[in-house]
Computed example of a mutant assay.
Amino acid sequence: MAIAISVRNLNHHFGHGHLRKQVLFDINLEINVGEIVIMTGPSGSGKTTLLTLIGGLRSAQSGSLQILGEELFQASAHELTQARRHHGYIFQAHNLHSSLTALQNVKMGLELHQHLSTAEMKARAIAMLEHVGLGDHVDYYPDELSGGQKQRVAIARALVSHPKLVLADEPTAALDSKSGRDVVTLMQRLAQEQGCTILLVTHDNRILDVADRILHMEDGMLTRNAAPSARA
């Protein structure tokens, strides 16, 4: 089976000199193409740091980090930007621009795809908003949307470019039980339809059943790697 994410002997630190603090310790991980993997662990355990390294949002300092066949260790800023063209991101706080409509926010997910015309970008964005059940909210601003609707816009933005990899950081943290379940089920369905890989960081035990595998991180180390049925 093809490998989407291959991490070998990855270490990472913040700060320098006596302020240097290591936050990731010898991370080794493989995720197959098409897998849905959930990463759990307490706050401060290094989950988000690992997610941002995999996503090319910061540079890897040591080890090997191969994402979709591209080595990101020692990658230049330009190479990281190119790698991010194949990723979709969903954040806890949805990170929508309050001054932009739902349609305009989703179109931002295509800004790195310069081969698309303005008309094509608009058509794709509208189609994706319809796909997430917000076809009648394309001209709404974030302040006019509920928490679940905002997160649906964020999902649409992440998936509108048909990415090969979707990275989600606590996407249900600010949602009630039903909205959280709806959002994750939607992510799962759309990702499966598009044939992409999902790596999702969460504290939400209510959504663990969507995973093919569950990783657990503590104190900067991966301490458990199991199928949902085998988890403690």
Rank of each mutant, 00 (worst) to 15 (best):
A2W: 00
I5Q: 00
V7M: 06
N9D: 14
G15R: 03
G17C: 05
R20W: 09
L24C: 09
F25K: 14
I31N: 00
P42N: 05
P42M: 00
G44T: 06
G44S: 00
S45H: 04
T49N: 02
T49P: 03
T49H: 02
T49K: 04
G55I: 05
S59C: 02
A60I: 07
Q74C: 13
A77I: 10
A77C: 00
H78M: 12
R85P: 01
H86F: 08
G88C: 02
Y89K: 01
L100W: 08
T101D: 05
L103Y: 08
N105D: 07
L110F: 02
E111L: 11
L112W: 08
H113D: 14
H115F: 13
H115A: 13
H115N: 15
S117Y: 10
S117L: 06
L129A: 02
H131P: 01
H131R: 15
L134Y: 03
D136G: 06
V138S: 05
D139G: 13
G147S: 11
Q149G: 08
V153Y: 07
A156G: 09
R157G: 01
S161V: 04
P163H: 02
D169A: 09
D169L: 10
S179P: 06
V183E: 07
T185W: 11
T185R: 15
L186P: 06
M187R: 02
R189H: 13
L190P: 02
Q192K: 13
E193R: 04
E193N: 04
G195E: 10
L199K: 05
L200N: 05
H203N: 08
D204F: 12
R206Q: 15
D209Q: 12
A211L: 05
H216N: 12
T223C: 14
A226E: 15
A226F: 03
A227S: 11
A232G: 13
